[in-house]
Computed example of a mutant assay.
Amino acid sequence: MDISQLANFLPYVLVIAIFYFLILRPQAKRRKEEKLFTESLKVGDRVITTSGIHGKVNQINESKGTVMIETNAGKLLFERSAISQELTKKLTEPESSK
């Protein structure tokens, strides 16, 4: 393989590298952070679900992967993955930074 053939593959290699660093790597990092967040949930944490329901974690069932959330309307059962990391972070931010 000579230099001209190698130069023909360079744009493809660059596109793959850009795709990896701009799309795949950040998604993997976000998934890892969300997994750590859902695993670190404990009873008494104030959370917001992906559907926007605010509540407090009342019970956690590790074997089923569910979380019981207490709201003003009562207690609701959710999958652990239904707890939103981003919305919950906004809920727990100090008032001075808002």
Rank of each mutant, 00 (worst) to 15 (best):
M1S: 11
M1N: 09
I3E: 12
S4P: 00
L6M: 11
L6P: 02
L6F: 05
A7C: 01
F9Y: 10
F9A: 01
L10F: 14
P11R: 06
P11F: 02
Y12K: 07
Y12Q: 07
Y12V: 05
V13A: 09
L14K: 10
L14V: 11
V15E: 15
V15G: 12
I16P: 01
I16L: 14
A17H: 10
A17I: 15
F19R: 03
F19N: 07
Y20A: 11
F21N: 08
F21A: 04
F21W: 06
I23H: 07
I23G: 10
I23L: 14
L24K: 15
R25C: 01
P26K: 03
P26G: 03
Q27K: 10
Q27F: 09
Q27C: 05
A28F: 11
R30I: 15
R30W: 14
R31S: 10
R31V: 10
R31L: 14
K32T: 06
K32L: 09
E33F: 04
E33M: 08
E33N: 09
E34F: 06
K35H: 10
L36G: 08
L36P: 05
F37G: 00
F37R: 00
T38N: 12
T38S: 11
T38L: 12
E39W: 03
E39R: 10
S40F: 07
S40H: 12
S40A: 15
S40P: 02
S40E: 12
S40T: 07
L41N: 11
L41T: 06
K42C: 08
D45E: 04
I48H: 01
T49S: 05
T49A: 01
T50I: 08
T50P: 03
S51V: 09
S51P: 02
I53Y: 00
I53S: 01
I53L: 04
H54I: 01
G55N: 11
G55E: 08
K56M: 14
K56W: 04
V57I: 15
V57L: 07
N58W: 14
N58I: 06
Q59A: 08
Q59L: 14
N61H: 09
S63L: 14
S63F: 13
K64D: 15
K64I: 07
K64G: 03
G65N: 03
G65Y: 07
G65L: 04
T66H: 08
T66S: 13
V67M: 04
M68E: 09
I69Y: 02
I69N: 02
I69F: 05
E70Q: 13
T71S: 00
T71P: 00
A73R: 01
A73V: 00
A73K: 02
A73G: 01
K75Y: 05
L76S: 02
L76R: 02
L77M: 13
L77I: 10
F78L: 06
F78N: 02
R80W: 03
S81K: 14
S81D: 13
A82R: 11
I83R: 13
I83T: 08
I83H: 13
I83L: 14
S84T: 00
S84P: 03
S84K: 01
L87I: 00
T88G: 03
T88Y: 06
K89D: 13
K89H: 09
K90C: 05
T92S: 13
E93Q: 15
P94H: 12
P94G: 15
E95G: 07
S96A: 11
S96D: 10
S96L: 11
K98N: 07
